[in-house]
């Protein structure tokens, strides 16, 4: 047990995510968890699932999910690989239908929210040879769904087109992509592509951003930087953010709330309320330990799908 804990403290999160462990390490606030203050009655959620379930064929991905995201909130959606985090986002976008329950996005049916929703899909990287500039990809977020063809020199005579260009420049500035927005997007780094894609999702001033593992495949400094960026945007622009993550570590300090998804439902609350042995063990119906290392960091140990495999895997690992 001790060996396992030390091995995990070494920060080898990649290994953990491969075997599907909800793993989190954080500087935990020592103050006892306090229940979140109930939202005022007139504030409607940006996103609300109730009694929701998704089935693909005979396989139920998850059921009995009741979650919500309030205006301006920064919420992480967590859970092991394959539990259906991306599916939850796709339901919100109207790309996957619910088999039971209801989903409401910005007060409407999923798929109706349109311009008020920003989306960044999972694991998107552009082909190295793609000779299209970052700024063109950002522009698609503004008008890509409009029929027709962009006309040359539209900015000279169309005020609307000029306003759009100003907004594009603004979001590129906001994500700090000014240096490389004119370069072909295939040639910039993964972190830079991710920033451009966040800019793309922001162009239309959405009220809700749905980000599917935006920190995936970034190195640690970039993860921290992009996480800080998303948090800043959420605050400055007043955007609610629902962000899927497999490692909550880089975003822990920015989060208002976390949503942990399991097959039989989801739990949500503050980090302290959700990421503890009792709550996670109940959600995954298998013993899961949340441990605190001597330096105050929090370690979640356990594998909701195959607990025995997991401990075999890690007990023999050499210490660094």
């Amino acid at each position: 047990m001790r060996a396992r804990l030390l091995a995990m403290n070494a920060g080898d999160f990649e290994q953990q995510s491969v075997v599907g462990i909800p793993s989190t390490v954080s500087r935990q606030n020592p103050t006892p968890p306090s229940p979140p203050s109930p939202p005022p009655a007139d504030v409607r959620p940006m996103l609300e699932f109730s009694q929701a379930a998704v089935r693909f064929g005979y396989r139920t991905v998850w059921s009995d999910v009741n979650v919500s995201v309030m205006p301006g909130e920064f919420v992480a959606i967590l859970g092991p690989n394959g539990v259906g985090k991306s599916t939850l986002i796709k339901v919100a976008l109207g790309l996957v239908p619910l088999s039971a329950g209801t989903a409401t996005v910005l007060g409407a049916e999923p798929g109706q929210a349109g311009r008020d929703l920003g989306y960044l899909p999972q694991r998107r990287s552009f082909d190295q040879g793609l000779r299209v500039r970052g700024i063109d990809v950002v522009r698609l977020g503004a008008d890509g769904d409009r029929w027709g063809t962009p006309l040359p020199f539209a900015r000279r005579w169309s005020a609307q087109s000029r306003a759009q260009q100003e907004r594009i420049d603004e979001v590129i500035e906001m994500v700090g992509a000014g240096q490389y927005a004119e370069r072909p997007i295939g040639e910039v780094s993964g972190g830079e592509q991710q920033r451009l894609l966040i800019a793309q999702a922001l162009v239309r001033r959405p009220k809700l951003l749905l980000l599917d593992e935006p920190l995936d495949s970034l190195d640690l400094p970039n993860q921290a930087a992009v996480a800080a960026l998303i948090s800043r945007i959420s605050r400055d622009e007043g955007v609610a953010v629902a962000m899927v993550a497999h490692d909550v570590n880089p975003i822990m300090s920015y989060l208002d709330r976390v949503i942990y998804i399991g097959q039989g439902g989801a739990v949500s609350g503050t980090v302290e309320q959700v990421i503890n042995s009792e709550t996670l063990s109940r959600l995954y119906d298998t013993p899961i330990e949340v441990l605190r290392a001597s330096d105050g960091r929090l370690v979640v140990v356990g594998d909701p799908e195959a607990p025995s495999h997991h401990s075999d895997r890690h007990s023999g690992r050499p210490l660094p």
């Binding site: 349109g114 929703l117 989306y119 899909p121 552009f126 793609l130 977020g141 890509g144 769904d145 999702a201």
Partner: peptide, 12 residues
């Protein structure tokens, strides 16, 4: 062509 997932989510 560039971004099928986002395009689809935007109603294309």
């Amino acid at each position: 062509t560039i971004d099928a997932d986002v395009a689809q989510a935007s109603g294309v």
